[in-house]
Structure formats: C-alpha cells, structure tokens
Amino acid sequence: MPSNDDYDTPWKDALTRYFPEFMAFYFPRAHAEIDWRQPHVFLDQELAQVVQDAQLGKRLVDCLVQIATRDGGEQWVYIHVEVQGQQDADFAERLFTYNYRLYDRYRRPVASLAVLADERENWKPTRFSYQLFGCEVGIRFPVVKLLDYANQTESLLEDPNPFALVTAAHLFTRRTKGDPEQRYAAKWRLAKLLYERNWDKQRIIDLFGVIDWLMRLPTELEQRLLQEVYTLERKVIMPYVTSAERFGIEKGRQEGRQEGEASLLKRQLARRFGTLPDTVQVRLTTATIDQLEEWAIRVLDAESLDAVFDQRPQ
C-alpha cells in the first residue's frame, strides 16, 4: 500500500465518478435500496467541517454522500464511506463519532460503511459501543475486507464491475511486494484488461490511475510498461490519451488546482487578518493541496494567522 495519506488519491476519484458501481460491488444490499434515478451528491466539505477536530487515521477515502431511498420513507439520507488503508485501533470509535455528529447536524439517518484495504488478515472491526447504568450506546456497521477476496483473483478479473479490478490491483500489490518483475506482469495484465472491455476513455484513465498508484514499479520497468501501453493503444486504434500524456495532464490538473485553492485561501486570510506578510504568501504558493485544505478548515475558527498555520508567535 502507498504510505502517504493523500486524500486526492485515484481511489477517491474512481469512487466519486463510479459511485453506483462501488456500492453495487462492495455493498449490494445498500445499492438495491437506493433510488439511483435520483441524483446522489457528495458533501465532502460538509464532512470536513463536521469532523475537523476528530483524530485522523490512514484513510484512502473519506466521503459523505446524500442519496434517496427506493421506499420513499426517507427522501434524503446520508452514506459515510471510509476506505481504510492501515489498521487503526480507534477506527470503530471514529466511525461512531462521525456518525453521531453527522446525525446531529442533519437529523437524518446516516449509514456508515467501511472498506478495509489494510494487510492485517484478522483485523475486521464492525462495531463500537459502551454501557453505563443500564444505558447502551453504540454502532454496528457493514465492513468489506479486501483480503477476503484473496482466493477469488480470477473471478475478479472476469467481473465487469470496475471495482473488481481495483480490488484485484490491491491484492496483486500485496502479492508482488519485493518482486518488481512479478508486479510488472500483474500490472500489465490489468492494463490490457482495461482496453479489452472497450470502456470509454475517461474510465480507462481513471482506473489505470488507481492501478498505477497502487502498483508502483522501478523507473526502468515503469518506462517499459508505458511503452507497452502506448503500443497497445495504437493497436486497438482508439483515440485515448497515451499514458505518458496522461501523466502530464494529471500533473497540470494538480498544479491548476493548487493555484486555485491557494488563491482562494489567500483571499480568505486577507479578509480575516488583513494584508498578508510575504512569508505567508510564499508559503501558500509552495504548499501542497492537502496543506491548503487543512489551513482552509482552520481559518474558520482561528483567531490569528499563527493559529491557522499552527505556529506560535515569535
């Protein structure tokens, strides 16, 4: 598993773009009860505000989705989804905390769902509760463990759901740890499957992004794989963006997003605290997207610039 906890992972991009498929693959019971004729809305900023002071774990995805149910009993309800990348002793308690805070905010039912992408075979939390003086409070939540699919690799590769391939990529990543040639072979196999299914350009790019992010290769093997993908794209005569070009596009998108978020935060800070020192402006320009988003949350309650950047006055 990648060691960073980048909240703008390709994992999250794929979930956001293909949320119905995500639910159908990992949580088919819930998928059957959702009215997909109605739009589903992602509320990530609202989630960040609700849980901004909660302890963060190694999450690959953390999102809140507003959906409609088929039975009409509740026109709008909320699904809180976490994809957890590492074992976390406080995971179940955190889901409990998020759930009751979200319910307190919206006064609507909230379903907490978890996908565990860690490497601990025996770690599978499903509940958190406590009792005191006859009062019992708690939560039980559905959990999907990617390792549970370990003996179903071939079935995953035949499944038309895109998240079957995402799951296979996770399993291949674990299985080929320390063996770059085997990882290359597995990654190339997954890449070919993307094209064999005649999916549209965006879906191929999105899913290849997840596979590429998971299954990192040494530079030499990565270049070999990119050449293979480029050759494949020409053979199938599809107007897809080549992998090398895609990397440049994605980099440009990230840079553009960083500039946009830095500009917005700069205006927010100036409105609250007046003219910004040059050191602050430089810091905004060079910050990562994660840092900018964290500071944007802090600015809501901060009483000074130092508090936003978690610095003590000199």
Rank of each mutant, 00 (worst) to 15 (best):
V51M: 09
D53S: 07
D53I: 00
Q55A: 15
Q55E: 15
L56T: 10
K58E: 07
K58I: 08
R59V: 13
R59Y: 12
R59S: 13
R59M: 14
R59L: 15
L60K: 15
L60S: 11
L60I: 06
D62W: 05
D62I: 03
D62L: 10
L64T: 11
L64G: 13
L64E: 03
L64H: 14
V65F: 00
Q66P: 01
Q66H: 05
I67S: 02
I67F: 06
I67P: 01
I67L: 07
A68T: 15
R70L: 13
D71A: 05
G72D: 00
G72W: 07
G72A: 01
G73R: 15
E74C: 11
E74P: 02
E74A: 12
E74W: 13
W76A: 15
V77P: 04
V77C: 11
I79R: 09
H80P: 00
V81K: 02
V81C: 14
E82I: 05
V83G: 05
V83W: 08
Q84A: 05
G85C: 02
G85K: 05
G85L: 01
Q86H: 05
Q86C: 04
Q86Y: 07
Q86G: 03
Q87E: 08
D88W: 06
A89L: 07
D90F: 04
D90L: 02
F91E: 06
F91K: 06
A92H: 03
E93W: 00
L95E: 04
L95P: 03
L95A: 11
F96W: 01
T97C: 08
T97N: 08
Y98F: 10
N99Q: 15
N99I: 01
Y100C: 00
R101I: 02
L102H: 07
L102R: 06
Y103I: 10
Y103K: 13
D104N: 08
D104T: 07
D104C: 02
R105L: 13
R105F: 08
R105E: 04
R108H: 13
P109G: 15
P109A: 14
L113V: 12
L113H: 10
A114C: 14
A114T: 07
A114F: 04
A114P: 00
A114Q: 04
V115Q: 14
D118H: 10
D118G: 04
E119R: 13
R120E: 06
E121I: 05
E121D: 09
E121H: 09
N122C: 05
W123F: 13
W123D: 01
R127N: 09
R127M: 01
